[in-house]
Amino acid sequence: MPRFEYLEPHTLRQAVSMLQQHGSHARIVAGSTDFLVRWRTGVWKPQYVVNLQHVPGLDRLSYSPRNGLRLGALVRVRALETSPVVRQRYPALAAAAASFAGVQVRNLATVGGNVCNASPAGDTLPSLLAFDAQCRIVGPQGERWLPLEQFFLGPGRTALQPAEILAELRLPPPLPNTGSLYIKHSPRGAMDISYVGVASVVSLQDRGRVCRDAKIALGAVAPTPIRAASAEAMLRGQTITPELLKRVAAEAQRLARPIDDVRATGAYRKDIVAVLTQRTLERAIEMARGAEMPFEVQRRLAVQAAF
């Protein structure tokens, strides 16, 4: 195995200058759960590993009704699963976190790492997209903001420029009367990669009859996680009926461009997109109408295992 030097910057500025100095020979790590696997298998061969764990504040999770949810890039996936405010305001994100790997990996893996690895099947990504996450990116020229939707360029490819670091994600506060859920269909119930993952966020008005806003995001069915914009548009401003939800699910299915791989055929994945879109919408609508759905129930719904 190729060897590397291990660096621990204490500020983001220091981390950026390490990346500038070592260029493509350096790689950022956070939880190191993806990194160590790919290093051992020879996929990644950095000469310098820059661990962000000692940069103060990067693991901060906070919420305010005005600014919404702020997630430092090093917030652990486990914190998303257990945080009361995430469970209450962003249930699709807490459910996605609970569906992610196993407890031991969730205690290490970070939300920023999941985003920067840019796997089409990354479990937190559809929910982050559906909550309109914005990325704060720090680099040699200072900082810039980018919608998460523009962050993913392809499998493992992101909009980060050389020596740039994802520092923070911000999710705007949800509208009143909003419900959301993530459902992942995978071979096993734990420690597995999804065939398909769908997150839906629905906000209602007129005593819960009319859709004020809807966001639908699909995982593992395209080169990047994607928003199903045309499916969302069919819901906005409309009275909710079972027939409408079926048509929206069919539109999401139409948008999916999955590949055949070792886990499933593209055709199977396309069928599942419709099922999960409809199911997440139905549950999100129930929650938006005030139905009690304890986290244990959401967690059970969030992973639909084949075996």
């Binding site: 939880g31 190191s32 759960t33 160590l36 790997a101 031991q104 990996v105 205690n107 290490l108 420690m191």
Partner: peptide, 21 residues
Amino acid sequence: GDCGACTVLLNGQAVTSCLVL
């Protein structure tokens, strides 16, 4: 990180020690 045989507590939390530097 898939099998859990290397699980230890790191600062009180269960982690797969093969995935920790």
